[in-house]
Design a protein around this nucleic acid. Sequence first.
DNA 1: TTGAAAGCGCTAACAA
DNA 2: TTGTTAGCGCTTTCAA
Lengths: 345, 345
Amino acid sequence: MTLNKKITIYDVAKAAGVSRQTVSRVINNRPDVASDTREKIQQVMKEFNYQPSAIAQSLSRQKSNLFGVVTAGLDYLGPSKTLSGITQKAEEMGYGLLLKELASFTNKDVQPLFQWFQSHQVEGILWAAPEIEDNRNWLKDLLEENDIPIIFLTMEKRENVSSVSIDNYKGGRLATEHLIEQGCRKIGHISGPLEWWEARQRKQGWKDALTEAGLSVSDHLCFEGNWSSKSGKKAFLQMIKQDPEIDGVFAGNDQMGLSVLQAVNEMGKKVPDDIKVVGFDNLPESEYFLPPLTSVHQDQQKAAIAAVEELARISELDFQGLETIAPKTILIEPTLIIRRSSLNS
Amino acid sequence: MTLNKKITIYDVAKAAGVSRQTVSRVINNRPDVASDTREKIQQVMKEFNYQPSAIAQSLSRQKSNLFGVVTAGLDYLGPSKTLSGITQKAEEMGYGLLLKELASFTNKDVQPLFQWFQSHQVEGILWAAPEIEDNRNWLKDLLEENDIPIIFLTMEKRENVSSVSIDNYKGGRLATEHLIEQGCRKIGHISGPLEWWEARQRKQGWKDALTEAGLSVSDHLCFEGNWSSKSGKKAFLQMIKQDPEIDGVFAGNDQMGLSVLQAVNEMGKKVPDDIKVVGFDNLPESEYFLPPLTSVHQDQQKAAIAAVEELARISELDFQGLETIAPKTILIEPTLIIRRSSLNS
DNA sequence: TTGAAAGCGCTAACAA
DNA sequence: TTGTTAGCGCTTTCAA
């Protein structure tokens, strides 16, 4: 009893000797069906291996049970961890996912994307691509034109939009304050690309921590990388040339932190004795660097879960026509994982 | 002219003073519309910001333009690189993607998943989760029951199923042969979990390379890890205890390779002078390990692209009712990236 | 507890 | 070149 023709509700109804509506009631677990009728129908459905068409249901109910997800840079660890959290939570809550990956981080032509989602009747959109440069400029237009609930992961707080972000500023402070506690007095920062909001936040955290501790924050203490190990090394070499007395480095991510470890080693100096290093992201491998790298841990999974929950809440209310949903900004706190690279021996 | 009520083809037709059919023709770029009629309609569509409902189109055409994607372990690098390739290529070819992530690698209850995809009328399925243990046991049942075209990424060759895989066996050989060339005579292997097909393949490549070179392949030369740096270190320590004369290690991935570097260092020995190391995966960071790690590079992007192309081909033919599509197994060749960890100084 | 009729938004087949 | 008629597979009234 397989394939050939697609089984429809009509086939089931006919075989069970009832009307399509009654079958529909069974599908939707309505109470108003005689129990023997129900059983009969269920049996036929099983026998035919019947699957109601989600498409027909969506059309009829005007409800798709689908969320749209926008990601970018899936070959990076952060975005895919976030996506993983989204898939798990969405599954748990019974939502399907339509996935789009931006071709580039700075893609600004988001119109087609929204139209596509709209035409597929998604009930909400999870925007899980990082905020870079002015790649949120379309937001104001969007808010007027678009009536699909949307939630952003990782972006600057805005009053009229819901978002869930890791507190990168806090992370920057945690890292820097720790280095200060460990006795560092000249703490450099290798930032991510400053078009990234996250990179700017981390840098600001570094800056404020230094200022509060009464330490100097001159420009030649911060160099910009592009997240890659290669760029981190280059930035570090420039930095150490400008100021050979640097005794602490806060790297914008672990990859750049890794290359600092390498560069220090090649200079014939020692981490942590001569220079202490802290990274960001807490890669699984960081524990195995030489020496193991202290790092700021951000729980992207947690952020993703919060985002899905909030979106479900919003879209549910939206569906019921309650328009008065106040946008909400959720911040997730990072934590510092301390390892040898930053500790006095 | 935004939102409020959803604009349908009917609204457009009325406003343009034509029938819905004619509008439909314009939507689908049919030639048989007078050019002034077409312009008029297009203008109305623009004015109303009209978007045809993909759901209604799917139902009517019996064609969704959607592929289903199954992934697992998105927080690992491999699966997300693969997924990234899939999204890019699918986008390029005009397919949307419905995404599901398996809760665990060894999930065997795939029935609901298939039913869900089926109910959404996906035109094909990309199975991008690794083959582990007997998590392909459902294949035989599936092939009978399921009529959706499906293509697997990374699995053992099977006559009746299409798949695209990296040639892991070849990768294992490349790594090992390279170590032999560099003069190693006692080459150990730290494998991934042997329930993984990929891990078994890499190991077999190692074994065969040794055998062909006339080197011994005793059991205490291979230990099993679980891909993590931690497990790699443990495996290496066991190995070196059993046979202190080991002068080369082929690690099943770069993470485990990394911890071998660490462990050797802690023993007071040197890589590559005392022990040479090769990894697998060629992580971006591997270039910055101490010393930089030689590694087998697998182009998952390429595999993903091939898979999408093949699936599109199959599903297209399938849609036309041509049932005679011979399953195809595509193998992608890995390459060896040579760095200091394996070179004579 | 069940069924008939209408409709979700669109397209295919046929006529005009 | 355009319109009419019938669906696609299901759900939602409303009536029986």
